[in-house]
Design a protein around this nucleic acid. Structure first.
Length: 426
DNA sequence: TCTGGGGTCCTAGGACCC
DNA sequence: TCTGGGGTCCTAGGACCC
């Protein structure tokens, strides 16, 4: 059996941890650039504010209902996530951390009654030791467990079990859009064929499903029937790609600013790459205007370059990324966003050296060693004294294109100078 | 003024090989 | 004259997830 443990309104719950005065009060957390609403307390959900809704559109209603709004504070969320995961891992020898706020575990040899108790126990301990409320769903496949989790969210216990080999109760009342793996597009296709509920989906002919919903859709249907198709992945598999992508705080028109931003995103991506001890064989850049803007000319373009040899050396990656910008950039547009992606990742150790460099000289191992030492030192300094302490000039100085982050809470748990302070009240 | 970011997997089509 | 088919690799795009 699988259990999926999912933190409730995770970012909001993290903020409340250090602001107990916000319990039972409406709270929302915004995405990068303070753009979208990405985490909502139950009170905010009740106001009808949707997940991912643009913040400016709901500014009035947020103000009217005195919603406390935070910019996202990922240092804090990552640290709290780590604490939650460490509690969960005590309950199961095998755990798959699926996302920042969610984990699968395998539990076997317990009958249904004990499964429920087991879940309640995990939930209580996480709440007591970390302070984060969770919901737990248990069933025989991951997709069924996720569905049980949906049911758990609205149950009093916060835990739900869909027993093995049993039909899903009330499946005729659950919408296909609540199923893990059925998104907007598939919901639309299904509804065009009169399929709106989970029991209708399960009853579908599998050949039809394969043809109309592709292989992923077929897996979903089989998983709902109790046939496991999505494997349990205890050990995190190596990343396939690393992406750094951000919207600009202001519309950007000049290639100079685009290049600064792209150099900066490349630097972030390369840091992640080295943290994974990997090298990339390709680098891609894309530029786009504001797709939401009605009255301005639109432009989108992207390109991927193969690197001479796989590398994680920032200066080389920046230089290649900037060449791509030269290729993509057109004057006369209001640019909104740039994306840098590193793909074709392989372990540092496995990387084969190219025989020739572009300048015709072979790159000897001492060049490699020097590059690696330099990156090591810079990564260390930036880790110790804060990101950007040592930066590349290509990233620019004033960085006018940077996004907004105006309502961030302190990094309570990861920066000495931002520790929470306890004060005695009279 | 203001509409997220970081991932994965799947499919289709073109180029190329034998 | 007969104008194939299987395979791989690459790229772009779309769908999904949180």
């Amino acid at each position: 059996m699988y259990a999926v443990i999912d933190c409730n309104n995770f970012f909001v719950s993290c903020e409340r941890l250090f602001r107990p005065d916000l319990e039972m009060k409406p709270v929302a957390v915004l995405s990068n650039n303070d753009g979208c609403i990405v985490s909502r307390s139950n009170e905010v959900k009740a106001l009808g504010i949707p997940m991912g809704g643009p913040a400016f559109k709901y500014a009035d209603i947020l103000k009217e209902h005195k919603v406390t709004v935070f910019s996202s504070n990922f240092s804090l969320y990552a640290d709290i996530s780590h604490r939650v995961m460490s509690v969960i891992s005590r309950y199961a020898p095998e755990m798959e951390m699926y996302s920042i706020d969610e984990a699968f575990i395998q539990i076997d040899n317990l009958n249904d009654q004990y499964l429920l108790e087991y879940g309640e126990n995990i939930k209580a301990v996480i709440l007591r030791e970390v302070g984060i409320p969770v919901s737990i769903g248990v069933s025989s496949t991951k997709t069924r467990a996720k569905l049980a989790n949906e049911l758990a969210k609205t149950s009093d216990l916060g835990v739900a079990v869909i027993p093995q080999n049993s039909v899903i109760t009330h499946a005729e009342k659950i919408s296909v859009s609540d199923v893990w793996g059925i998104g907007r597009a598939l919901t639309q296709i299904l509804s065009e064929h009169g399929i709106v509920t989970v029991n209708q989906l399960i009853a579908c002919d599998e050949v039809w499903v394969r043809k109309n919903l592709t292989l992923s859709g077929l897996k979903v249907v089989q998983e709902l029937k109790g046939i496991s198709c999505i494997p349990f992945e205890e050990f995190r598999t190596a990343k396939q790609s690393i992406i750094s992508s951000k919207s600009f705080g202001i519309p950007v028109t000049t290639i100079t600013q685009i290049k600064e931003a792209v150099a900066s995103y490349t630097t972030r991506a390369a840091e992640k790459l080295r943290a994974e001890h990997e090298c990339a064989s390709h680098i891609g850049v894309s530029l786009t205007t504001n797709i939401h803007s009605k009255n301005t000319r639109q432009y989108y373009n992207s390109s991927t370059h193969r690197l001479l040899e796989p590398t994680n050396y920032t200066p080389e990656l920046i230089s290649e990324a900037l060449k791509i910008v030269d290729k993509l950039f057109r004057t006369g547009y209001l640019y909104k966003k740039a994306v840098v992606s590193l793909v074709g990742l392989d372990s540092e150790k496995a990387v084969q050296q190219g025989l020739f460099r572009s300048n015709g000289l072979s790159r000897n191992s001492s060049t490699h060693t020097k590059q690696r030492s330099l990156m090591n030192v810079i990564d260390h300094v930036n880790c110790e004294y804060g990101s950007g302490t040592v930066a590349y000039l290509a990233e620019g100085i004033s960085k006018q294109w940077k996004g907004r982050r105006e309502r961030s809470s302190p990094r309570y748990t990861t920066r000495w100078e931002e520790l929470a302070v306890a004060t005695a009240s009279r």
